[in-house]
Design a protein around this nucleic acid. Structure first.
Lengths: 99, 99
DNA sequence: TTATTATTTAGCAATTTTGCTAAATTTATG
DNA sequence: CATAAATTTAGCAAAATTGCTAAATAATAA
């Protein structure tokens, strides 16, 4: 029961990714990462938005959960970078249905 | 002040479309329309989901607002059909950024 | 005109999401 | 070890979303 079929996994992908993309701040974070050459630490991202750090931390976790950003820790800093391939593949899979 | 720039309109498109796609029932409605050869009236759509009519009416309105479905009245019936082109164009525009 | 069918609107309760402040955690540095 | 810097977690209040029932509307049929 722990294993999921390909179709089930695809449904979960759609769910996580579309939920992540539903909020303007999260979409904005993605475009900021894109503009900055796709690698920024949390503090830099926070400085680009008008919300408090904990709020943005949570948005970042949702993006991470959706697989749209990847994270690595560098001493005390947390570096985020875009996962463009994931964005492409999940949305293309969805669009495929409508072709 | 009433006119919006191309960029502003694109931002609104992203907002409406991604919000519409965020809920699994709404995505499901779109795939049901697709499977049925993309034209169904409200009652048929309702019969394919496990929610009450007013709930689904509201989901349909959100899809319409996002431009993902088009609506026409045929006497007492309301016929919905997919706007595949809109789905394609808005999502492709978004994906374009990440290429 | 009345009744019927198809659908939407109103309005409310439950749930989820968002944003905040304050406190905790983690790693490096003096 | 104590402090500082970067970030997350806890927990709460406000706002948004979802689903429901009951009532309203619109077009057609009897």
């Amino acid at each position: 029961m722990a294993t999921k079929s390909r179709a089930e996994r695809e449904l979960m992908d759609f769910d996580m990714v579309f939920k992540a993309l539903a909020h303007p701040s999260r979409r904005y974070i993605l475009t900021v990462l894109l503009a900055k050459g796709d690698e920024m630490n949390a503090g830099e991202i926070v400085s680009k938005l008008s919300h408090k750090w904990p709020t943005i931390t949570r948005h970042l976790r949702q993006l991470e959960h959706a697989g749209l950003v990847k994270v690595k820790k560098v001493s005390t800093q947390v570096v985020y970078h875009l996962n463009k391939e994931r964005m492409q593949s999940v949305l293309e899979n969805w669009l495929q249905f409508f072709k």
